[in-house]
C-alpha cells in the first residue's frame, strides 16, 4: 500500500545580524545555498535562533520589487508586502512566513524590515550610513546617496574594520547610560563588499558632505536629530513604532557626538576620525 504522506526535506540556516539570530527554513536546497552565499560571514553555527521564518517559494511572475512597500500591524501580526514578496510575522510567537521567488533580494528586504521593528522597541535602528571600527571604537558616516558613504569606506586605512558601506546596525545597550553598539551588516552599497561581522561601541556619528577641504564642525542637537531621522530606515505605518523611532533618534543624538564631516576624496580625511 503506497504511503499516504510524502516526507519533505526541510533545510535551515541561521542568519545572525546585529547579534540577533534569525532562522530561515526552506524546503529548497538550491535556495538554501543562495542564502548561505548571500549571508556568508553572518551564518551562525549555533542552532539557537530568536526568530523563525518559513520561506515558501513561488514561481514567477510574482516579482515586482519596484511596487510600493507596505508594513502594517493587524491582529497581532505584522504584514509585510511588496511586489516581490508577501510576509507575515507574529512578534509574540516570534515566527513568520515569507512567500517569494527563489532570489536573495526579497528576503533581504524582509530581514531589514524585521530588524528595524525589533530594534525600534529597543531604542536602536538601521541607518543609511557607512560604519567602521578603529582603535576599538565604531564611527558612523551618514548621508544620502552620493554624500560619500562608499568613498569614505574605500579610503578607510588598513587598520580599520569596515562594518558596512551602506546600512549600519545600531543597538542601544540595555544598561542605563551604557551607550550604543554598531554591528557589521551584509547590506552593501556600491562597494558590493559585505561588512565584517564585528561590533564596537559607537564613538561618533559624522554627517557627510563633500567639499574643497577636510573639515569637522559641530552640529546642533536639533539639526542632528533631523538628519538622523532623515537617514533612518523605517517602514512601519504604525503610530507607536513611529514614536519609538523618533525617541530612539532623540536619545541617540543626546548621547553620541554628532559632527558634520566635509571631506575631499583623499585618505587623509581619516586622520580626522577618532
Amino acid at each position: 500500500m503506497p504511503g499516504l504522506a510524502t516526507q519533505v526535506e526541510r533545510y535551515s540556516v541561521v542568519i545572525a545580524i546585529g547579534g540577533v539570530p534569525v532562522r530561515v527554513n526552506t524546503t529548497d536546497s538550491d535556495f538554501l545555498e543562495i542564502l548561505q552565499n548571500r549571508y556568508a560571514g553572518f551564518v551562525s553555527d549555533e542552532g539557537r535562533a530568536e526568530y523563525d521564518f518559513d520561506v515558501e517559494l513561488t514561481v514567477p511572475p510574482f516579482c515586482d520589487p519596484d511596487a510600493d512597500l507596505s508594513v502594517t500591524y493587524r491582529s497581532g501580526r505584522w504584514l509585510l508586502q511588496r511586489g516581490d514578496f508577501h510576509a507575515e510575522w507574529e512578534p509574540v510567537t516570534r515566527r513568520g512566513s515569507i512567500h517569494q521567488t527563489a532570489n536573495p533580494y526579497s528576503i533581504d528586504a524582509v530581514l531589514r524590515i524585521v530588524h528595524t521593528l525589533v530594534l525600534a522597541r529597543q531604542g536602536g535602528f538601521l541607518l543609511h550610513s557607512a560604519s567602521a571600527i578603529r582603535n576599538g571604537k565604531a564611527f558612523l558616516f551618514a548621508g544620502v546617496s552620493g554624500a560619500g558613504k562608499t568613498t569614505i569606506s574605500r579610503l578607510a586605512p588598513a587598520d580599520a574594520t569596515l562594518l558596512t558601506d551602506e546600512i549600519s546596525y545600531v543597538r542601544k545597550q540595555p544598561e542605563q547610560d551604557a551607550g550604543y553598539i554598531a554591528y557589521g551588516t551584509p547590506f552593501t552599497g556600491e562597494l558590493a563588499k559585505l561588512g565584517e561581522n564585528a561590533s564596537a561601541p559607537v564613538a561618533a556619528l559624522y554627517l557627510l558632505a563633500q567639499g574643497p577641504e577636510n573639515r569637522i564642525e559641530p552640529v546642533a542637537a536639533a539639526d542632528a536629530g533631523r538628519e538622523l531621522l532623515a537617514n533612518m530606515l523605517f517602514f512601519a505605518e504604525d503610530q507607536e513604532m513611529v514614536h519609538c523611532a523618533f525617541q530612539a533618534a532623540c536619545d541617540f543624538v543626546h548621547r553620541v557626538p554628532v559632527h558634520r564631516l566635509t571631506f575631499v576624496p583623499d585618505a587623509r580625511v581619516w586622520e580626522l576620525i577618532g
Partner: peptide, 13 residues
Amino acid sequence: RMLGEEMLVMSGQ
C-alpha cells in the same frame, strides 16, 4: 522632544 533650543514633534501618521 526638546533638542537643544528647538522642539521637534513627530506625527505618528
